[in-house]
Computed example of a mutant assay.
Amino acid sequence: MQNLQDKAYNYIYERIMNLRLQPGQQVSDLQFVKEIDVSRTPIREAMLRLRREELLYSMAQSGTFVTKIDMQKALDAQYVRRVIETAIIRTLSADIDANELDELIKIVIDQRRVAEAKLLDQTFALDNLFHKRLYQFANKDNVWQWLQSFSNDLNRYRLLRVYDENLPLTLLSNEHKRIVDALTAHDTDRVTQLMTDHLNLMLKERAEVAARFPEFFKNVPEQN
């Protein structure tokens, strides 16, 4: 059973990560007292924890704010993920079994359905699930959990990408479908290239996403 501090932390953390609390938005403990129905002490402790995790920051005589998305940190996390995930997909191209392929196919079908219906949060959740399953099928679930521990900026960026109506939602499921097809064929070189290209989408689209939501970002490097 959750204690009150964990309840407050999980509530605020989820609202930051799903962008219900937007980057740069001011927040207060009193607002969360009303929303969560707990006292100020566990909320303040939860907010202190979120400040240590750099998801909140405080300014003297101004208040507490949701930290903006640090594009450089997002790019660094994307780099680590690309190195690891291409290694995982190479391993799976030889070892993946029929049941695992069936599960990936089902995720892709569901992802395309919700993307066509413009169900944004579900599209993002299924995108995450597709990649998480790859780590689990390769017995690297701990690696996935470790990656999440420093991917807050990257994951908020990825959700914003889903929210950008100028970028096609079905592109993600289409690329996942090609990855599954290459896994089914046990084509190691092709699936590795497809995964590399898929994870490099951020490098191609980041300028457009940052331009559409400029108030949400900081430390945006110039694009070469």
Rank of each mutant, 00 (worst) to 15 (best):
K7V: 09
Y11P: 02
E14W: 04
R15E: 06
R15F: 00
Q22P: 03
G24Y: 02
Q26S: 13
V27H: 04
S28R: 08
Q31K: 10
K34S: 07
D37S: 15
D37P: 01
S39E: 06
S39P: 00
P42S: 01
P42Y: 06
I43Q: 10
L48W: 09
L48K: 14
L50E: 06
R51K: 14
E54S: 12
L56M: 03
A60R: 05
Q61W: 13
S62G: 05
G63E: 03
T67C: 11
Q78S: 14
Q78D: 09
R82D: 09
V83E: 10
V83P: 06
I84R: 15
T86W: 01
A87P: 02
I88N: 06
I89D: 04
I89H: 10
T91F: 12
D97T: 08
E100A: 04
E100C: 06
L104S: 12
K106M: 02
I107Y: 07
I109M: 04
D110K: 12
A115W: 03
E116M: 12
A117Y: 03
K118V: 12
Q122S: 11
L126H: 04
L126F: 03
N128V: 10
L129K: 10
R133K: 15
Y135T: 02
Q136V: 08
D141C: 05
V143S: 11
W144H: 06
L147Y: 09
F150T: 12
N152H: 10
